[in-house]
Structures are given as structure tokens and as C-alpha cells.
């Protein structure tokens, strides 16, 4: 009977809408990138198609890297739709709040750092590392979602940008804990990729930040 109620809109994101639906009598998440009226249709279609294919590929490649992601059941390029496993759990964004004890928070962030490390070590950058794109399931596993802006690359630059985005997301959404969280992320990261590589990426992050607008460290000209 509860079939009647589906599909249900789970989340209307900026890029795509997520629905809960049935697919071959299995409860699934349908991710549909709908057309964006603001940009030229030609450009829009190109972006949506590219990201749909890319995301599907990276979601399964990430598994090979040892990073939990939803399993893909079906991809329809024409409608920019991916049908994937429904993940139970809580967005990390909602967890990193005051109510989490410091130790648990640190552990969670270190775990996230490890997973990012695994991705990078395998040659993938996520492209949109924010705490809304990570889900903690009841078994304590962290699942990464939303690989639409990801890339297969081994460049230190891309890795640096990836972690810079993580840092900035922590700062804007969890500014109270941003410093300790990012430190824990980098620790977990170093545990996987090794001290030397982590340091290299860390230096890169500094360089990327200096390249941005209005960074105090950029130049000492005062």
C-alpha cells in the first residue's frame, strides 16, 4: 500500500533532486539532474550529461578505493538520472554540532580524513567535499555521496583544492569546531597517504589559499 505514496521528494538540491522510489520492488534513491533554465540549453545539457556519467563512474570506482558509496542500479543518460541504493543514516552536517562529545567528533573527522586519503591515493578527487555529502550509517560507516564534480586525477593541485574546499565548508558551516575538525581530517588523511604526501598536499592548500583574494598571508606589504 505504501507504494502509492512514492515517489517522494527527499531533497531538492541545487543541482539535482533526490526522490525515494521503488525500482524492481526495491526502495531506491533516484537522482535526477533537471534542466537549468538559467543557462543556455546547449551548455546545460552538456554539463548534466557529463556530470551524470562521471558521477556514476566515480561512485563505483570509489568503492574500489575502499570508500563506501551507494551502489548504482541504473543510469539513464538521456534524462540525466541515476538510480542508486538508499542509504540509511544521518548527514554528517547535522552531527558535527555541539551535542557531539569532542572525542567522538574528532574520531568522525579522522575517519573522514582517512576516506579522503583513500580516494586521493586511488586517484580520485571528490570535487565537493562538504559535510552534507557524507552520511554516517547506523553501523558507524561513513558513506560518501555526490561525486558529480569529481575527477580522476593524481595532481597535487586537485587534491589541494579538494581539501581546501573541505576546510572552507567546515569554516562556513561548523566554524566553532572548524579548526579541530580540519586538524583531525588531516591526521586521518596522513595515516592513509603517509606523512610526506600529506605534507605536500598541506603546503599546496596554503598555496591555494594565498592565490585567493584578500589573504593576510598572501604578501607582507604592510
Amino acid at each position: 500500500m505504501d507504494r502509492v505514496a512514492l515517489p517522494v521528494l527527499l531533497k531538492k538540491g541545487a543541482e539535482a533532486s533526490l526522490f525515494i522510489d521503488y525500482w524492481h520492488s526495491r526502495k531506491v534513491v533516484v537522482k535526477k539532474r533537471s534542466a537549468k533554465k538559467y543557462r543556455p540549453a546547449e551548455l546545460d545539457l552538456k554539463i548534466r550529461t557529463y556530470r551524470t556519467i562521471h558521477e556514476a563512474q566515480l561512485l563505483s570506482e570509489a568503492k574500489k578505493a575502499g570508500v563506501p558509496t551507494p551502489t548504482i542500479f541504473f543510469v539513464d543518460i538521456k534524462s540525466s538520472t541515476i538510480i542508486m541504493e538508499m542509504i540509511d543514516g544521518e548527514q554528517v552536517k547535522r552531527l558535527i554540532g555541539a551535542e557531539l562529545p569532542e572525542k567522538v567528533r574528532g574520531g568522525l573527522c579522522a575517519k573522514i580524513g582517512e576516506l579522503i586519503g583513500r580516494l586521493h591515493h586511488y586517484g580520485i578527487v571528490h570535487g565537493d567535499l562538504t559535510t552534507s555529502n557524507m552520511i554516517l550509517n547506523p553501523e558507524g560507516k561513513v558513506i560518501f555521496v555526490d561525486f558529480g564534480l569529481g575527477e580522476k586525477t593524481r595532481e597535487v593541485e586537485a587534491r589541494g583544492v579538494d581539501l581546501h574546499l573541505m576546510k572552507r565548508a567546515l569554516k562556513s558551516t561548523h566554524h566553532k569546531f572548524a579548526k579541530e575538525c580540519f586538524r583531525a581530517v588531516m591526521k586521518g588523511y596522513a595515516d592513509v597517504v603517509g606523512k610526506k604526501e600529506a605534507e605536500e598536499v598541506s603546503n599546496k592548500i596554503g598555496e591555494i589559499e594565498k592565490r585567493g583574494r584578500y589573504n593576510e598571508k598572501r604578501r607582507k606589504d604592510q
Partner: peptide
């Protein structure tokens, strides 16, 4: 124009959704 405005609009939309 189309390209750079689409880019900045996309990230603005992300911020609104977020």
C-alpha cells in the same frame, strides 16, 4: 558571459540550497 554567469549562478544556487 553565458559561461561565467552560469558558473557563478550555479554556486549561488548551491549556497541558497545549503
Amino acid at each position: 558571459q553565458e559561461n561565467v554567469f552560469s558558473m557563478v549562478t550555479e554556486i549561488t544556487e548551491r549556497a541558497i540550497a545549503h
